[in-house]
Design a protein around this nucleic acid. Structure first.
Lengths: 249, 249
DNA sequence: GCTTAACTGCTTACGTCGTACACAGGGTGT
DNA sequence: ACACCCTGTGTACGACGTAAGCAGTTAAGC
């Protein structure tokens, strides 16, 4: 149990050492992870099987187990590898910084919608995700917030982006699964329409009829602006619920 | 394909009609859904198999298929049934209303952490979720916002709560999977600690050493207050990016 | 009443998944 | 040369979702 957990930590934080003896490996941990990411991107999370990943590499399923302990660990490695593609938040003004961070994460989720669909076996981010978070903490570290507040501020942004991302991922998945695009689906709403009666769903039917669902505001842009406004109010307020303390390095 | 989608809609929106002939069913759709929810609550999303659900009902796996088309549809029904447990947002002042809505959803996710872990086959909420959303829309409908803005405001709150919920669900899952509680895990951090070096993770190590991670602010409470503050700024601002129009019924 | 059609739940079976295990061949150390 | 460790493969097992077909049970139509 505990050794399992430790092994999992080592897997993420310590690069695999190359062996001196034995035949040169055609595969490698990073090649496996890379291939798995490609499969998930192209065919969705349901198609992400050990056999499928191995197939794209021209190997058998079991060959993967020489480079990766198991599927759930492979998922952990995939997630952290994708985090590695994002840029660190540069130092600077806090709002611009948090916005940069949010956009990076959002872009990551859009490029790899499966990120939020798979439940990783981790309790803690890997090194790539960690350094990104660290940089985000840094950008709000000079504001006189307490350590707890720094964490809370960044976490709030993270939660919002996770929420939007999750919704988007589900949409992408439904689209792939059914082969019906978002628009096509809403057009073939015959079976559904009769249930949208003003007495059961007054606001829904009203908003529907007024076309508010057809040209919605950008969920990410709108929400992010509001979240940052709310954080600004907190940061700039004279008397915060908790003590101000200098926590920057 | 399309008939599949229509069948899925009917499944959620039209209550199953009781047949006149044949033996009285010991099972029923709602009993199956109920049992499945209990299994997911008690044993987690991984234990949610057709055989396990049937077992708790004293039946065989295949008997479930008389009452539910398949597993993914069962998941849809479970999700909507849980939404049915929450209370509708009462009419009233917008901020209190949105806060009530957020707390309801948050309580729902805490009671059923699996809700955000399973990818449902829907592209659209079921009737229970719909009526809850409708009530939430209603509470911001008298503020002179446009229809698009009403949707965006409520969606923003929803995304935030989804984000926090998702994080919590992953924690619960990791706890169950490993049998190690959050505290126990952080205490046995030996294998991890050596990687927290000030040069790689300056803020992390600082926050860690200052104990900011040990007594974090409540992620939900803190974030919700900020999000609502941000929405308040938007709602109360004189000149919003988009037109004000009366959209209430 | 009897027949018939509808409906229930069960048994069996198939294909797919993750992966344990044993193995054959290649390459480095001694 | 040997021993050792490494590589990828083949086979196999148990668990999953679920298709198909089979009794047994009940109400509707004659």
């Amino acid at each position: 149990m505990k050794s399992d957990r430790d092994r999992s930590v080592r897997l993420l934080w310590e690069p695999p050492a190359e062996p001196t003896r034995g035949p040169k490996a055609a595969l490698s941990q990073s090649r496996v992870v890379e291939a798995a990411i490609k499969v998930a991107d192209a065919e969705g999370v349901d198609a992400l099987t050990m056999r499928r990943v191995a197939e794209t590499l021209g190997n058998t399923a079991m060959s993967l187990y020489r480079h990766v302990p198991g599927k759930s660990e492979l998922l952990d490695l995939m997630v952290d590898a994708v985090w590695g593609e994002t840029e660190h938040t540069p130092k600077g003004e806090w709002r611009a910084g948090l916005e940069f961070y949010a956009r990076q994460v959002w872009a990551m989720y859009r490029a790899h919608p499966w990120m939020l669909q798979l439940t990783t076996s981790r309790r803690m981010p890997g090194p790539q995700a960690m350094t990104r978070t660290d940089a985000a903490y840094a950008v709000v570290s000079e504001l006189g917030l307490s350590g707890e507040e720094i964490v809370a501020v960044v976490t709030t942004v993270g939660h919002f982006v996770d929420g939007v991302g999750r919704t988007m991922a589900d949409r992408v998945q439904a689209e792939r699964e059914t082969g019906v695009s978002e628009e096509e689906w809403w057009n073939g709403r015959d079976a559904l329409w009769e249930h949208f009666t003003p007495d059961r769903l007054p606001m829904m039917t009203h908003l529907w009829n007024s076309g508010s669902f057809e040209r919605p505001l950008d969920e990410f842009e709108f929400g992010l602006a509001r979240v940052l406004d709310g954080l600004a109010a907190f940061i700039e307020s004279e008397e915060r619920p908790l003590v101000r303390t200098r926590t920057c390095l």
